[in-house]
Design a protein around this nucleic acid. Sequence first.
DNA 1: AATTATATGATAATCTTTATCATTTATTTT
DNA 2: AAAATAAATGATAAAGATTATCATATAATT
Lengths: 121, 121
Amino acid sequence: MRFSKQREAVYRTLYHTDIHPDAAWIYAKTRETEPNIGIATVYRNLNELVSSGRIKRISVEGYAERFDADMREHGHMVCERCGRITDVDCGSVSVACSVEGVTRCEITLYGICDECRKKNK
Amino acid sequence: MRFSKQREAVYRTLYHTDIHPDAAWIYAKTRETEPNIGIATVYRNLNELVSSGRIKRISVEGYAERFDADMREHGHMVCERCGRITDVDCGSVSVACSVEGVTRCEITLYGICDECRKKNK
DNA sequence: AATTATATGATAATCTTTATCATTTATTTT
DNA sequence: AAAATAAATGATAAAGATTATCATATAATT
């Protein structure tokens, strides 16, 4: 796999955020430094970065697919009100439900995040 | 919430399968007993059944949203080759990574299912 | 420098899901 | 039981997300 200017840029965009963005956000953000990049290139590179194990795809109910460049083992907490995703340490858990043939374990918590809880109280 | 013939039919279709199907499958299947039901009605009812806590929505990478009428606590194993979803007992796990504000915990394992492993050996 | 392979950007196409709206079905009220 | 109200339906348009296509551009190899 060649590391083109565009692939580099997409990766860098994702690497420098912790908001677990979707492709549209990554596209807009990457355009700030790479103004001619096309949306297809963003999707293409996200897919290739996922295939090559450099980033993770996160599937969340009710939202477009989101991405994460943090490859350390961790879970996600999805706010059902604002959609924000925050990292959760679930390191020890994946072992507990290991099954034959499993390559990875995704743990996703749904609920209301700190920010949203504060707003409503 | 009123339980119309159509809502009943959609629910029954889902209740009687363990393949964790998507809306298109549920639509086709429900049409066998309810030949005039429209796809919009299927989506509408799936959403309402989810909201009212009668069924679960399952978000899986690379597939349309899928649904499950089994409300007992369990995890899912998604086959990366054939897309099949099978149930996994993870009952004790959700407690282990509880976080403030969390309402539910989804555990999804990705890997290669039994069937697919057999085929390749 | 010529050849080959890979990546790009624009855009069309596809797939999934939701919105709209006139009609139908069910429930309440009179 | 008829009229009035509320909710659900089905057809289809619209929206949103993602992939496919393809001519062009860029990089690697010979």
